[in-house]
Design a protein around this nucleic acid. Sequence first.
RNA 1: GGGAGAGUUCCCGAGUGGCCAAAGGGGGCAGACUGUAAAUCUGUUGUCGAUGACUUCAGUGGUUCGAAUCCACUCUCUCCCA
Length: 376
Amino acid sequence: MYQLLKQEGAARRGEFVTVHGTVQTPAFMNVATAGAIKGAVSAYDLKDLYCQVQLCNTYHLHLRPGDETVKKLGGIRKFTGWDGPVLTDSGGFQVFSLAKLRNIKEEGVTFASHVDGHKIFMGPEESMRIQSNLGSTIAMAFDECVENPATYEYAKASCERTARWLERCKKEMARLNSLEDTLNPHQLLFGINQGCTFEDLRVEHMKRIAQLDCDGYAIGGLAVGEPTEEMYRIIEAVEPHMPKDKIRYLMGVGTPANILEAVLRGVDLFDCVMPSRNARHGHAFTWQGCRNLLNAKYELDEAPLDEDCQCPVCQKFSRAYIHHLFKAGEMLAMRLTVMHNLYFYNHLMEKIRDALDAGAYRAFYEQHIEALGRRI
RNA sequence: GGGAGAGUUCCCGAGUGGCCAAAGGGGGCAGACUGUAAAUCUGUUGUCGAUGACUUCAGUGGUUCGAAUCCACUCUCUCCCA
């Protein structure tokens, strides 16, 4: 359950209590799609990085190693060695990202496996069953993440269907949670708001799913190619209609600046592949902006990735060394940079919470928003 | 000493008369990445006063309207025989 501790404008400081641990919000979830954070970072490292919640993916784990297998091995938390809360994404986003291979109907979606091309059918019930087998703390509703741009007609039909799917998810989850051999009888369900960039569809959809009394509410289908200002506009339109006593999760977002902006607009929870993916591609996030360690200018730079960072990587290694590791194709380059970036994101959230606790979020925002968006 | 082959742009390597500033790799330089089919993708990589000009394919000289490509000699390297 979510408890609002403090509010400053729309920005919220809260606490989300689950059977697998309490999450201090605003929080960032570290993305471990197939059960591991890419870049050779294990659950073993996550404590050092102040990770609170790990996110795993239904579709990927269903394909490999198989959700039944994960269940036999004690569930996703035991399997990956991470004993904190885990949120599993529903596979809805994969329907979108595997766009060329899909066929969407009322019952669900048929699409081709990216591993071997075999046909997979997934609907609300299938997604809930898989997530139940994975035994995550939080299951996400099975939704359709519509491409941008989309026509009004398609967006309307799609988000109405997503609302109907949520009702089915809720029903199936209640059934699964009451089964005797379920891994987590207290598995939570988050509903997902859709409606593309159409404010009226977004609001209407939000009002409708708010009545279903989910354990949390997510805003999905943003940061999929629309201008950033559009995203902020949609959050502002939807937020007043989100239940105050439920946690709010902005899916797949974002840059450090995006997070500051979204917290300002009342969002509590985030996840994004950016800190890990960009790290693998040589980019380190810092309080002064984002730097590309591949650049020749770091060849003789003995400073740490971020002079203001207390992470294990910045305590020991120089930009010059990490630059060299990237040039030499050493996997340590990725590991170190991913670790730094995840620490940076988690630490950024901690600073945001500190500022909210002190009633000084607006000042914190003003102080950092410009620098965080820079490229250095 | 005799015979055979080879020298191409930062590197490897294609090119055997004009469509060649020269394929393709690699490397270099930069960019992208937002619920991860992503250790991936894109651009660029002779010089300049730049929709054109100039210099370059070991060196020198030659044949030709035109040469990285043909000829002669020189240099260097590799292999085989002594």
